[in-house]
Amino acid sequence: MPIRHAVIHQIDKKPDGSPAALHLAGATLPESVAIDNLLYDVADTYNAKQGKAWGFFHGESGAYPLSGWLSKYMAGSTDFLEFTREAAEHLTRLMEESNLTTGGHVLFAHYQQGMTEYLAIAILQQVETVSVAADLSVSVSRNLDTTNLSFAARICLSEWQNNPKSRQYISFIKSKSGKKISGYFQDFIGCQEGVDGPGETRTLLKAFSDFVESEDLPEDSAREKTQVLVDYATSQTKRGEPVTIEELSELIDEDRPKAFFDYIRNKDYGLSPEIPADKRTINQFRRFTGRAEGLSISFEAHLLGKRIEFDQGAGTLMIKGVPTQLVDQIKRASQA
Rank of each mutant, 00 (worst) to 15 (best):
V130K: 01
E159C: 09
Y111V: 05
P164M: 06
A20P: 05
K49W: 03
V322G: 07
I264D: 00
Q312S: 11
N99Q: 08
I245V: 12
Q284M: 13
T316R: 07
R256G: 01
I123N: 07
G178S: 10
A152M: 04
N99V: 09
S221W: 08
L94R: 15
A207L: 00
S61C: 01
Q329F: 05
H90L: 10
P257L: 01
Y40G: 05
S221R: 15
F185N: 07
M1R: 06
R280V: 14
I252A: 07
H105P: 02
V212G: 06
Q236F: 02
L107Y: 09
G68L: 08
K179Q: 11
F188E: 07
T116P: 04
L204G: 01
R286M: 11
Q113C: 03
T101N: 12
Q168I: 00
P65W: 06
P164Y: 04
A88M: 03
D216S: 14
G104Y: 13
E246A: 09
L39Q: 08
A222I: 04
E159W: 02
L217T: 04
V138C: 07
V127Q: 14
G190Q: 05
D311G: 01
A292D: 06
M115Q: 14
I245M: 00
Y269N: 04
A259L: 14
D79E: 12
E86C: 04
F80P: 07
E224D: 11
M115D: 13
V212W: 07
D253P: 09
P164G: 05
R202P: 00
S141W: 02
L149N: 13
T92L: 09
Q329W: 05
I8E: 07
W160F: 07
E82P: 00
A122H: 02
Y40N: 08
F288V: 11
K49M: 12
L304T: 03
F172V: 14
T324N: 08
K176T: 14
A222C: 04
P19A: 10
G321T: 08
G190R: 02
A152N: 02
N162V: 01
A153E: 09
P257C: 01
G313R: 05
V7D: 06
Q325T: 14
P276C: 07
S150A: 09
G321H: 06
M115I: 09
G62T: 03
T324K: 15
K176N: 11
L271G: 06
L251C: 04
A152K: 04
R280Q: 14
D278I: 14
D231Y: 10
S67Q: 09
N143G: 03
R286L: 13
N99Y: 03
V243M: 00
G62D: 12
F310M: 08
